[in-house]
Nucleic acid binder design. Structure first.
Lengths: 200, 200, 200, 200
DNA sequence: AATGAATGAGATTTCATTCAT
DNA sequence: AATGAATGAAATCTCATTCAT
């Protein structure tokens, strides 16, 4: 059997390096040579696998979004009560471990890049669609199983997702007020208040 | 009599141009020569008033934050019921008019810049402190005058601000789901639900 | 009586400032604005008195040379024995006091400038002609009055002047070996050995 | 087999070009792009091998000093009488051939650069230490073999070196009086007079 | 596949000079 | 006479991209 193409592996290696450089230097200061160094490769080879710096970034953003989604999908696939799953899902958004911090950095850089780039806006749009569906599914399941009560699921989903985004930014910026724990608490409280069965 | 120093005026002119370029090109693509052109000035003069590109951006971010704050302060200084003022305040955050869109662009670029720059993180930290105080004051006034009911003001303030931030991002990215109107509705609903007098 | 033109005074003020900047920053790094600052004037006025930076430097070099010469002429005009005058003259070349150090800085910058500029080479040529005549006159006087003995005055003059130049460079460069005192000693010894009456 | 690193060769190529530009334009007017053109390279590559213009100049000065020293060492290593070697050595300092002229240009630029730069002063200090040792060794050898007579070797060495420096400056500045031949004669006469065996 | 040297366009920054006041 | 703001050409330096090996 032919050895599986090194291409996929090398592309992943380069995108992983790109994510790390996005954390350490940000989109504005990112150089192709930084990525090469972070991947322990030569600058030249980057352009063998990616047509341009722009293409590299687009691919990295797209890849990061799919990886994030897959991670979350595995949580809601579990056979557990909806409220347990929702709180577990919320935890995965708190930038505490290195991987989550990295994901958020990539995401913030995507936002600013997307302000000027329709392709990146497109990635953002698809991503948010998926996330709304994901969280919406858990809430719906909760309503059906009687652990949640909610008259406007879409509204809660959008409020919750935007709250998560805004809180994550402050955590990343090392806000004294919004620590990772406080972010978790604020999200939990929102869910408990808005979706409580005996709220009425 | 000495003519009034042109310095303050010229600095403001350059920072206004910087804000416009931040909207059209973003932080990553912003060139000093773009700013000069936008300000109808020669490239050299930018460095006469700002030591470096970095310094120019820092000053622009700082200035934009103070201007934003002043605009909002004038709203809550008015002699109106707290709920009216709160909803009016929320409206000022919806990126609908050009000035608000510009403010949000500047703010998003500040976030990503701040991820790598302690000075910018500092500006963010001060800004959020002020905004929490501002919104907190309106809610407190509402509680005292009986139009709001709330057991944990700080929690609501933080949830509300983060929700605004997250929603604004999606509006700027031209999300099909989160339009300016929808952003306004989501904020209004949150306030009406969480601070309603007869919520219990 | 009309107040004497401010022009001569202002030109001297600017050239003095130029000399100071030549000491602190050197020819390569000298900026017109540095000179203006050192003279407590605005950058614009420099070009009112000097057509260009080049002209300013040429004038400064020329002026410095004449001032140096005048200072030395006053020494040999004194009514003293030739050997006393020669040793006194040698002392004035040792970069010990601030004015002499400044003169030498100006002179070294003239050398490097002159390597590419015929006008400056011309100043150098005239200056060395004058200095040879000056020192030659003292030695001749010494021979006539019997305190010196020398068969080739021109040779000694040229050896002595070049030695002074080479030693001054090392003193300015803070050589550990060639201190100001050592420079003085080396010059004195040369004169005492080469011009001694009973040398034969 | 790995091709031999191009780095050493390229650096030497660039420093050689730098020396040529120092001759034609001098330190003040030297541009990185001039060096690139003189080396038949693109401007960008200069900064690939040297961090900055300043670093390039420092390296060039350092390299030139070592090359000069090596050239002279090969002379005194020969098996010849000390007086022959000393006169041969003196000849190498007369700016007659292109290479010697270039060396002196570089050296004069080093002096003026060193007036403001401790690193360059350090190079000068080391260089003069070596040169004193070199000439001192030849004179000592001459004394031991009976061709020279001298009671204070250090004094003669310092007088001779400074005389060489001062004379070379005037030759470079195309003095009518100090031609290359006259420089050689003045040095020879000094040595013959001061080190003559039957001087006493 | 991979390297890393090389290119060259373009960015920031500097600064002599000009000019309105 | 003098200021200092403004210009604009040119300098240093950066870096995406190419290419010979």
């Amino acid at each position: 059997m032919a050895r599986p193409s090194v291409e996929a592996e090398r592309r992943e290696q380069i995108m992983a390096a790109t994510r790390r450089v996005l954390v350490t230097r940000g989109l504005t200061l990112l150089r192709v040579s930084d990525v090469a160094k972070a991947a322990s490769l030569s600058p030249g080879i980057i352009h063998y696998y990616f047509d341009s710096k722009e293409e590299l970034l687009r691919a990295t953003f797209d890849d990061a979004f799919h990886a994030s989604l897959d991670r979350r999908k595995s949580i809601i696939a579990k056979d557990e009560p909806a409220d347990v799953k929702l709180h577990a899902l919320l935890r995965t958004y708190v930038p505490q471990d290195e991987r989550t911090v990295e994901s958020w950095h990539v995401w913030l850089q995507l936002w600013t890049g997307a302000l000027q780039d329709p392709d990146l806006r497109n990635i953002n749009e698809r991503a948010y669609g998926e996330w709304r569906a994901l969280i919406g599914a858990v809430i719906t399941q909760g309503i059906e199983t009687g652990v949640f009560e909610c008259s406007d699921t879409a509204l809660v989903v959008n409020q919750l997702i935007s709250m998560i985004d805004g809180l994550a930014v402050q955590v990343l910026l090392e806000s004294g007020e919004i620590t990772p724990d406080e972010m978790a608490r604020l999200c939990d409280e929102y869910v408990d208040t808005l979706l409580a069965v005996d709220a009425g």
